[in-house]
Design a protein around this nucleic acid. Sequence first.
DNA 1: ATATTATATACCCATAATGGAATATGTCAA
DNA 2: TTGACATATTCCATTATGGGTATATAATAT
Lengths: 126, 126
Amino acid sequence: MDMARAPTTFDSFNAVAEPCRRQVLGLLATGELPVNDLVNSLGWHQPQVSKHLRVLLQVGLVRVRRAGRQRLYSINAAPLKPIHDWASTFEHLWQHQLDRVKQRAEAKAVLMREQGGVDRMGPVKK
Amino acid sequence: MDMARAPTTFDSFNAVAEPCRRQVLGLLATGELPVNDLVNSLGWHQPQVSKHLRVLLQVGLVRVRRAGRQRLYSINAAPLKPIHDWASTFEHLWQHQLDRVKQRAEAKAVLMREQGGVDRMGPVKK
DNA sequence: ATATTATATACCCATAATGGAATATGTCAA
DNA sequence: TTGACATATTCCATTATGGGTATATAATAT
């Protein structure tokens, strides 16, 4: 009865979920750019670029400045911080997981050294 | 002519764009939980919870384990790392921005101390 | 076998997003 | 003014979401 899905302009999480928009931000990370440069770098149709920029603008991830007949877009990374912070909340969890993977790998390495086995699953032939 | 929007199950970026799903992950961060516990904690309808869990499962953000007639869901944070890493790419940008804000605040504070002015915009009365 | 509990799926609806193509707006030049 | 260039907006078709409600499936208890 209400929204089908949070609009892309709802917050930076939604705006950035679209891979295209992440690409745009990636390019803008190097500095201010006019729309046409983005169009050329990305190889997309100009309206598409403008539309993605509009979404980014609405969530405050980019700023615009007019220079003659072009509009120079620049990044404003601040709204990405909440995303980073939120993900950080879970950092210890994937660390542990990676640790476990690493430990298992090391344990295997030890076994190999001890028994001179081969790095392969299954029982080791005696 | 193709996808209207990347499916929520496309990657963790999209899965996590939905605030509800972040809530679920938040609860699971404390440990394995059966669906019903989530339903009670969140106060949503059970099918809704199951559906969100399904999306999280498809992008690998949760694992399931059967225990009798219940299914115990646990978090698997690994797919959040790419999000964290991606955001980190821009960290220096929002740092700078924050630094600039802080610097401006400090500069203002200095002026206030020097001239005993009031924290207000506009020209300072001589 | 049947009832009960726990969870998943199917169906409906309103909303909206994406890319493409065409067109509008705005700015500068001649 | 007219034309060329830079960018934005509108319209279209396709796709899929998320909530609600009803129902299916699975496991346990009686």
